[in-house]
């Protein structure tokens, strides 16, 4: 009795459940790999930009570079760019209050920050729902299969284990596939959520520190 024969021998609803779960698993792995790449790159870019920023480079230089390489710029670079752009724009206007200037700068950075966070967090919710729902879907398939196998048992005069066992094995395959889809999704979700959180903290603290630097420039 091989796994393939178990799958092909299952009833149609169970097979449907298996197909859904397989699709969910495929997509969740796709997103897992995609997220691994994007998060790793974001981390690298953030570290690179932090290194450049704190090495004492000229802010205008940094800004220029960020504008030029806008396509390949990291999230932190974009936050910096939007904040600096807002700051320089407001500063040129005569008679601006320092408080208002800093407020608008921070708002601009905040907006970019949120946009970037949204990009980083995208499809994490998919992983979360695969992780939480697919065990239930698999369980549904299993329950359905076991229901069927017991109903078939009612027609048999003498019930032996060999009458029930194949049906239950077929049904259990659905739960196995469900867990197979769910476990990596949950692990990946937790891992990615942690990574995104750490990046968010880095962005936040950078925003604050950068605001301080800008405020000092005004005086």
């Amino acid at each position: 009795m091989s796994v393939l024969s178990l799958i092909s021998g299952a009833s149609i609803p169970v097979q449907l459940v298996m197909a859904i779960l397989l699709l969910a698993s495929l997509f969740s792995w796709y997103y897992i790999f995609l997220k691994v790449f994007t998060l790793r790159r974001a981390e690298k870019q953030t570290a690179e930009f932090e290194r450049q920023f704190w090495s004492g480079a000229d802010l205008t230089d940094l800004f220029q570079r960020a504008v030029n390489a806008r396509d390949s710029a990291g999230s932190l670079e974009r936050i910096f760019e939007s904040g600096f752009r807002e700051f320089t724009k407001h500063r040129r206007e005569p008679g601006t209050d320092v408080g208002a200037l800093m407020d608008s700068t921070r708002r601009a950075m905040r907006a970019t920050y949120q946009r970037e966070m949204d990009k980083l967090e995208s499809s994490l919710s998919f992983l979360a729902s695969v992780g939480s729902v697919s065990p239930y879907v698999g369980l549904l398939g299993t329950v359905w299969g076991i229901m069927n196998s017991f109903r078939g048992l009612a027609n048999v005069g003498q019930a032996t284990l060999s009458h029930v066992a194949p049906g239950i094995a077929e049904a259990l395959i659905a739960t196995a596939i469900g867990l197979f889809a769910a476990i990596p999704a949950v692990v990946a979700y937790n891992r990615f959520a942690g990574d995104v959180n750490r990046l968010a903290i880095r962005f936040d603290s950078f925003t604050e520190e950068f605001s301080n630097i800008l405020q000092r420039q005004v005086h």
Partner: peptide, 30 residues
């Protein structure tokens, strides 16, 4: 390198890896 190009390359790579993952699991299971 443009961000869009990087992104599409990532997507293709991720899709291929996901498929490979499942094929590997299936082979192991069978």
């Amino acid at each position: 390198m443009a961000a869009a190009a990087i992104h599409s390359r990532d997507e293709a790579l991720a899709g291929g890896l996901a498929l490979a993952m499942h094929v590997l699991f299936l082979v192991l299971l069978v």
